[in-house]
Amino acid sequence: MLPKFWRQFRVILPILFGAGVYAFGLLYFIIPNKLMEGGVTGITILLNYAFGISPSLSTLIINIPLFLIGLKMLGRRQMIYTGVGIAALTFFLWLFERMIDMGWIIPFQTQHDYILAVLYAGVTLGIGLGIVFRFGGTTGGSDIIATILNRAFGWSIGQIMLALDILIIGGSLFFISKELVLYTLVTVFIATKIIDFIQEGAYSGKAFTIISDHASEIAEIIMKEMDRGVTIIPAIGAYSKQAKEVAYCVVSRQEIRRVHNIVKSVDPRAFVVINEVNDVHGEGFREELHH
């Protein structure tokens, strides 16, 4: 029982932390500078700009029916971490609102240097959402809508979310200037890149696929000189019908030139394909500890 609880806790804790970072970014950078955000969060910001409604209150009111619909259509298992994300976002929005009201937090507000606000907003929102997504959670809203529409009509989740973002950010033109909308697009771009970085993993590298008549010799040198594992894959040339060997290995970015030099020194005519790889686990990279 305890190990199962601990596994759940190890997933839920990062979702709580990510939701807190995201809520902080909204209240510290986005709202004070009249910027925007996509999805249902963007609706809560618009309601705040138009009617002064608390973001924590509108987040809760909008997400409760969406969560109940999602629970019915998508199932309890898929929605459990979404529920955690919604509850955490609502709580942290409420908490930071109270802290701002009491003067414990002074939001970053600027009238001139919006670039600084945009950069930090994008990084903060990206880190928060990236952590939430990486551990299987969401902050509700448009994620639920997109998943339901995908199940019902087969539409792409990415396209649905993009359409919702365009609609909501476009609607903000009634409340904020075109200049701030353009700044918002920069924020969204930065946040998206940070989310991708966290999702794909900081531990990235390059995968070498080496097709050569001397693949075994190349593998031996890589293993000996670089202490990297290499896999030899038997293959057959589609045109020549001759048996070949393919060497496959993953190295860090700093080792790309060394592998190039080894391959060329053994077989200058080797056919080499280099691919980007992300979130590399295993010996020589990130080790996963299992208890």
Results as ranks from 00 to 15, higher is better:
D196M: 01
G122S: 09
A215C: 08
F271D: 00
E245C: 00
R253G: 15
N63E: 08
G38P: 06
V186A: 14
M79N: 09
S216I: 05
I236P: 00
L93F: 12
G158M: 06
I86K: 12
V259P: 04
L125V: 06
E288L: 15
I144T: 08
E288G: 01
A152L: 15
A207T: 13
T90D: 06
L2I: 14
A219D: 08
A219W: 08
S172T: 13
I144Y: 04
V259F: 04
I221C: 03
G38E: 03
R253H: 14
S156A: 04
G83A: 12
S265L: 11
E220C: 00
I160E: 09
V188E: 08
R76T: 10
E255Y: 10
N63K: 11
V186K: 02
L46Q: 03
F9D: 01
A202Q: 07
L119F: 15
V259N: 02
L125Q: 06
D227E: 14
I169C: 05
F133Q: 02
V118G: 03
L46E: 04
Y28E: 01
T82M: 10
E276L: 06
K264M: 14
Y81T: 01
G18R: 03
I106G: 05
N150C: 07
I105T: 11
Y120C: 06
V186N: 01
L89H: 02
Y183S: 04
A243W: 00
S54H: 02
D113F: 08
I232V: 13
Q254N: 08
L162W: 11
L182N: 06
G52I: 14
P55E: 11
R134D: 02
T110M: 09
V40T: 15
G201A: 09
L74K: 05
L162A: 12
L27D: 06
S156V: 04
H291Q: 10
G136N: 08
I145M: 05
G20S: 13
I160T: 15
G130N: 07
Y183V: 05
D213C: 00
F17Y: 03
E245T: 00
R269S: 15
V123W: 13
R286L: 13
G141V: 10
A191G: 09
G158W: 03
S212D: 02
G130E: 07
F24H: 05
G136F: 11
T59H: 14
F51L: 14
L89K: 04
